[in-house]
C-alpha cells in the first residue's frame, strides 16, 4: 500500500517535472539561431522549398501550438525524425536537396534506444568499479578516523579528483592498448571495449563516494547504538557489517541520485575519447549537426532517466530507513 501511494505520488510529480523540462528544452531550441527547415532541405535548396518544408513541419505556427503538437506525438511514442541522419545510418548533411534519401530519416526514438544499452552498460560498470574502489578505502577510513587508513583514503581521493578524465583516458589507452595490448580502447566490438572507459569514469566518481562513506561511517560509529552493541553481545564484524554500513548507505544513495548528473557529463567526454558508440557520442554529434529533434529527444530522455532514478533512490532509501518519507 505504501509502495503504491509512494509511486503514484512521485510519478505524478515526476511527470510534472518532465513536462516543465520538455517545455524549456523545446522553447530554447526554437529561439536559438539556425533554421531547421533550411537544415533539412540542405544549404543549396531554393527559398520556396525551404518555405514549403517549414509550412509542412508546422514551423510557422506559434511555439505553444508547436509544443502541444509535439507533446501529442511524444504521448504516442514518437520523438520525431532526425533532420540529418538517414535510416541506413549514413549522414545526409551534404547531400543535394533533391536526393531521395532525404525523405528517409531515422526515428529519434530508434536512435536513442539503439545506443542506450551501451551507455547503461558503461555507466553500470563504472558504478561497480567505483564501489569496488571506494568501499575498502571509505569504510577503513571511517572506522579509523585520523589513522593511516583515513590519510590513505584522503590522498587517494585527492589524486582521483585532480586527475582530468580526458588525460587519464588517453594515458590508460596508451598503456593498456598500445603498450601492453591487453584491452581495446577504440569503438565497440564486445564487452571488453567497455572496461577502460568505465574505469576512467569510476576514478572520476570514486572521490565523492570515498568521502561520503568515510564521513558517514565515522559519524555512525559515534552513535550510541553502535557503542552499546558490544555490551549487548554483538560481534564487531556484525556491528560494522550489518549496522554501520547499512546506516551509512543512505547518504551514499542520496549522493548517487545527485552524482548521476556528473556521470552523464563524464559519459559525454569519455565516449568521445574512446569513440564509444553510446548516448554521449550521439549527443555530441547531434549538437555539432544541429539535429534539433535528436537533441530534444536525448535531453528529454536523460531528464526522464534522472527523475526516475531519483525516485528509485528515494524508494530504496525509505526501505532502508523507514523514518524517511518522501
Amino acid at each position: 500500500m505504501y509502495l503504491l501511494i509512494f509511486l503514484s505520488r512521485r510519478l505524478l510529480q515526476g511527470a510534472a517535472v518532465l513536462l516543465i523540462v520538455t517545455f524549456a528544452i523545446f522553447t530554447l531550441l526554437r529561439v536559438v539561431p539556425g533554421d531547421p527547415a533550411r537544415l533539412i532541405v540542405g544549404g543549396m535548396a531554393p527559398d520556396e522549398v525551404v518555405e514549403q518544408k517549414a509550412e509542412e513541419l508546422g514551423l510557422n505556427d506559434p511555439i505553444p501550438v508547436q509544443f502541444i503538437k509535439y507533446l501529442g506525438e511524444i504521448a504516442q511514442g514518437d520523438l520525431g525524425n532526425s533532420f540529418v541522419r538517414a535510416r541506413s545510418g549514413s549522414m545526409g548533411g551534404a547531400v543535394a536537396f533533391d536526393d531521395p534519401s532525404r525523405g528517409d530519416r531515422a526515428e529519434v526514438l530508434d536512435l536513442i534506444i539503439e545506443r542506450v544499452p551501451l551507455t547503461l552498460q558503461l555507466a553500470g560498470l563504472a558504478v561497480l568499479f567505483s564501489l569496488i574502489i571506494s568501499f575498502p578505502l571509505g569504510v577503513a577510513a571511517g572506522l579509523n578516523p585520523g589513522a593511516w587508513q583515513d590519510k590513505l583514503a584522503f590522498f587517494a581521493g585527492s589524486i582521483f579528483v585532480s586527475v582530468p578524465n580526458f588525460w587519464l583516458g588517453i594515458v590508460l589507452a596508451l598503456l593498456f592498448s598500445v603498450h601492453l595490448g591487453i584491452l581495446p580502447s577504440i569503438g565497440y566490438k564486445g564487452f571488453e571495449y567497455t572496461i577502460l572507459p568505465a574505469f576512467v569514469l569510476a576514478i572520476e566518481m570514486s572521490p565523492f563516494i570515498i568521502r561520503t562513506l568515510s564521513v558517514s561511517i565515522a559519524q555512525i560509529m559515534q552513535e550510541e547504538f553502535i557503542s552499546v552493541a558490544p555490551l549487548r553481545g554483538l560481534m564487531r564484524s556484525r556491528i560494522v557489517g550489518a549496522h554501520a554500513i547499512r546506516n551509512a548507505s543512505i547518504p551514499l544513495l542520496n549522493l548517487f541520485g545527485i552524482q548521476l548528473g556528473s556521470l552523464l557529463g563524464g559519459v559525454l567526454v569519455i565516449e568521445f575519447i574512446f569513440d564509444y558508440p553510446g548516448l554521449g557520442r550521439l549527443t555530441i554529434n547531434a549538437v555539432l549537426q544541429r539535429d534539433f529533434p535528436l537533441i530534444q529527444g536525448i535531453a528529454i530522455f536523460i531528464s526522464a532517466m534522472f527523475v526516475f532514478i531519483n525516485i528509485a533512490v528515494d524508494l530504496a532509501a525509505s526501505f532502508i530507513d523507514p523514518r524517511l518519507e518522501y
Binding site: E224, F225, V228, L231, N247, D321, R323
Partner: peptide, 15 residues
Amino acid sequence: GYIGSNPAGALDPTL
C-alpha cells in the same frame, strides 16, 4: 545483561 540510560539511541533506527 546491560541496559543504558538512553533507550532512544540504543538500537539501530533502521531495523
